[in-house]
């Protein structure tokens, strides 16, 4: 089943080409839409919501043509949810009042709107605070309200535009977990945009990379990130071991592990769960501080390096930021409990 399909979709503004012959076929599940700022992500969502006509080509959402007229567009918008990138919440009403109002704007009768609001706010993790004015919420709570208003009418598909924007690492993980649940537990397909590539490899079933309005690559996340189970380890120096990294490397090599170094980072080939213990014991034995130990897989970012030749004709200005985002994504926390950064 196809949830979103576009065929040679183009959008030209007087000075900028936002989308350039984009052909996509997206199935159910969580799909990440990756691209630098200005790559055309938001433009694509606008077209899919039927709010902005395409210059060329066609697009369909849930099997309905977005350009088929206002009735079809209304049907599409009844069945999809949208969480914008920017702030969109009035500060002087409570989350409950606001989400109830938005549910009614989606056509839900008053009673159903209230019930669905209570359910949805609980699912996104807002409890007592939902009766307080939104103005006093933290960024993380506001993002949850934004997500709740996109889900309150039980859509079949949600568009989440940069849902992790402005969140701290913990809030970001919570939001990514929530997005995963939207599909896994709620059965709602998700199109989530981000310019942080690393985020999506943990959350999405499928990743679409666009740049300069063109499709760079579209494939499932497992294709992108064959799990080779590499551990990244970083340690501090101590008085006894002025070069902690080198010392540890020697110690681990002595324990029979395969190691490559990248500056202060050591990449250890993990043979199994034992490897974590070996590394931990080695670090503790040497009395070094363990800055980080995290699972490392091939990054989606690397496809930019693979495909250097392909998008050479990109629109100006967008490609410069991709190496930066790639390195930003390296702060992905480890999935192993022992991997959380702690100093000894």
């Amino acid at each position: 089943m196809t949830v979103i399909a576009t065929e040679n979709l183009s959008k030209r503004f007087p000075r900028v080409t936002a989308l350039d012959g984009l052909t996509l076929d997206i199935g159910p599940g969580v799909t990440g839409l990756v691209g630098a700022n200005g790559a055309g992500k938001s433009t694509l969502i606008k077209i899919l919501l039927g709010l902005s006509p395409a210059s060329e080509g066609s697009a369909s959402v849930l099997g309905l043509d977005v350009a088929a007229g206002s009735d079809t567009a209304a049907t599409i918008r009844e069945r999809v949810g949208y969480m914008p990138e920017h702030d969109c919440l009035p500060p002087d009403v409570s989350a409950t009042e606001f989400v109830v109002h938005m549910a009614r704007m989606s056509g839900l009768p008053a009673t159903a709107a209230r019930e669905r609001t209570a359910d949805t706010l609980r699912h996104v993790g807002l409890y007592e605070e939902r009766y307080r004015p939104i103005g006093g919420y933290s960024t993380g709570m506001k993002q949850r309200v934004k997500l709740a208003q996109a889900l309150v009418h039980d859509p079949q598909l949600v568009f989440l535009d940069e849902p992790t924007n402005g969140l701290d690492p913990v809030g970001r993980d919570d939001m990514l977990g929530l997005i995963r649940r939207v599909h896994a537990d709620f059965g709602i397909s998700v199109l989530v945009t981000s310019h942080l590539l690393g985020e999506l490899e943990r959350t999405c079933d499928h990743v679409v990379v666009i740049d300069g309005g063109r499709l760079l690559r579209s494939s499932s996340t497992s294709d992108f990130t064959q799990s080779t189970a590499t551990l990244a380890v970083e340690v501090t120096d101590t008085g006894a071991h002025p070069d902690g990294t080198a010392t540890l490397r020697k110690a681990l090599a002595g324990a029979g592990l395969e190691i490559t170094a990248d500056g202060r980072l050591l990449y250890v080939q993990a043979e199994g769960d034992d490897t974590y213990d070996v590394v931990r014991d080695a670090v503790a034995g040497l009395g070094l501080g363990l800055v980080r130990m995290e699972q490392r897989r091939h990054r989606i970012a690397e496809i930019f390096r693979d495909d250097d030749t392909l998008p050479a004709s990109n629109q100006a200005g967008t490609q410069a930021s991709t190496p930066t985002t790639a390195s930003t994504s390296a702060t992905t926390p480890a999935t192993d409990p022992a991997g959380s950064p702690h100093a000894l």
């Binding site: 914008p84 969109c88 704007m105």
Partner: peptide
């Protein structure tokens, strides 16, 4: 003004409301 200032307008137009 409130809908414009707090940018709530897109939430309406992403719904059946035109």
């Amino acid at each position: 003004s409130r809908d414009l200032r707090f940018r709530t307008v897109p939430l309406y137009f992403s719904r059946p409301v035109e």
